[in-house]
Amino acid sequence: MSTIVLVSVIVMGSLGLLLGLVIGFFAKIFKVETDSRVDLVAELLPGANCGGCGKAGCADFAKSVVSGENPPGKCPVSSAEQINAIAMALGIDAGGGFKKRAVVRCGGDIHQVARKINYNGVLDCASASLIAGGPKGCRYGCIGMGSCAAVCPFGAIELVNNLALVHPEICVGCGKCVSACPRGVIQLVPIESTVHVYCNSPEKGPEKRKNCKVSCLGCRKCEKTAPEKFKVEGFLAHVQYDAPVLPTEEDVEAVKCPTGALLTAARHKEIETNDPEFSVNE
C-alpha cells in the first residue's frame, strides 16, 4: 500500500519537474522584451476595462498611450489628477477634449408636441414605443417615460413636462442612457459644446410641423449663417461637434432659428423648467 503512494508521488513529482524545466527552457529561448512603461501606465489606469477609449481594455490603451497613438486624456474614467499622473510619468502632454456629456436632442415637451394616443401602459420608453410608437405624435423624439433617467447611475436626468433633460453639471458621459433610449434621441457630445439642435426627426419639414411646434424644419438658415458649424442633412440640422470651433450663444442669436429648435443648453433648460407654455409662435 505504501509503495503505491511512493510510486505515484515519484511519478507525479518527476513529471512535474520535467515539465517545469521544459517550460523554463521555452521561456528562455522565446523571451519577449516588453516595454516597462506599458506596465507603469497600466498600473496608473483605473483598470475598469470599460472600453470607453475605443481600445480592447486598459492594457491595450496603455500600449497605445506609450506608443503615442492616444493621449492619456482619452480615458473617460480617470480623473484629471490620474491623467496628469500618467502624463507626468511619461513626460508627455495629457491631452483633453475627450470628455463627453449626454444631450437629449428633443424639445418636444408636453406643450409643444401633439398627443396622438392616450397611453395607459407600462411607464417605460421601450414598451411605449412598441405600442403605436408611443403617446406623442412624433415618432423620433423623446417619449418622456424616463427610461434614461432610470438607468442613469448618477441621477443626472430629470423629466420636465414629459421631456428628459440632462443636467450637464452632474452627467459624466458614461453613455448608459444612450443605449437605454429606444429612439436614439440621446447623443454624447463634447463637454465644451453649449449649442444643440433640439430635434431628432428626419421627416420632411411640413410633416414635422404638424406634430411639433419646435421641430427643425431643415430651412438651412443655420447652415447659411455658419456653414462650418452647422450642417443640414436631409431635413434635419446637425451641430458639427468635431469642427475646430464650436457654436456659441452669438451664433444662435445670429441664426434666429424660426422654430427655436436651435438653442443653447442654458436657454433650453430655462424654457423647460421656468416657462412651460413657451412657444416661438405665440
Binding site: L19, F26, A27, F30
Partner: peptide, 23 residues
C-alpha cells in the same frame, strides 16, 4: 492518476505553445 496527469501535461503544453506563439 489519469485525470491529474492529463491536466498537468495539457496545462504545460498550452503554456509552452503560448510562450512560443508570443514570440
Amino acid at each position: 492518476l489519469q485525470v491529474l496527469l492529463f491536466i498537468l501535461v495539457i496545462a504545460a503544453l498550452v503554456q509552452i505553445i503560448e510562450i512560443s506563439l508570443q514570440k
